[in-house]
């Protein structure tokens, strides 16, 4: 076992892990931050997306020890300081961007990464960016709509609800 320390959602976090412990396992099992979902565990679905030093990564495909000293952001840190939903989360609710909600943490974290680099993406750019985030429920249209709305753009012309 080895000690790993990182900052998670602005707070110092540390724990004992094995070489093979995944970042997703460290977040979920050690820190009990179970908002990060593991949908496939084969690097395909994106439910486990978190930010490491500001970049979206699949936490099921990164070793916890690789995140030593890093700034990690998870879905638990996304809400506003007063506990209300942030702009992206609220837009997912307003535009019915989720059904079962399993993919949603990864979707929101990917959306946040996209909007940080590209504050006004086109619909196609949103769809391209979500290439690695799979949703089995919504058919994606309302997720795309929610992200476009969160970026402050008019979504009245985007595919029907």
């Amino acid at each position: 076992m080895a000690k790993v320390s990182m900052t998670v959602n602005g707070k110092a976090a540390s724990g004992e892990v094995e070489g093979r412990t995944l970042l997703s396992s460290f977040l979920r099992d050690t820190l009990r931050l179970t908002g990060t979902h593991v949908g496939c565990d084969t690097s395909q679905c994106g439910a486990c997306v978190v930010h490491v030093d500001g970049k979206a990564v699949k936490s099921c495909t990164m070793l916890a020890l690789e995140a030593e000293g890093a700034e990690v952001a998870t879905i638990e840190g996304q809400a506003n300081a007063d506990g209300s939903l942030n702009v992206i989360q609220q837009a997912f609710q307003d535009h019915h961007g989720l059904q079962c909600g399993f993919c949603t943490p990864g979707m929101v974290m990917s959306a946040a990464a996209l909007l940080k680099d590209n504050p006004k993406p086109s619909e196609q750019e949103v769809r391209d960016y979500l290439e690695g985030n799979l949703c089995r429920c919504t058919g994606y249209h309302n997720i795309v709509k929610a992200i476009m709305a969160a970026s402050g753009q008019d979504v009245s012309s985007i595919a029907a609800e």
Binding site: V49, K55, V57, K58, T61, A113, Y129, G132
Partner: peptide, 9 residues
Amino acid sequence: IGDPAVRNR
């Protein structure tokens, strides 16, 4: 290549 998260690692 792959998707954004794959490209970041």
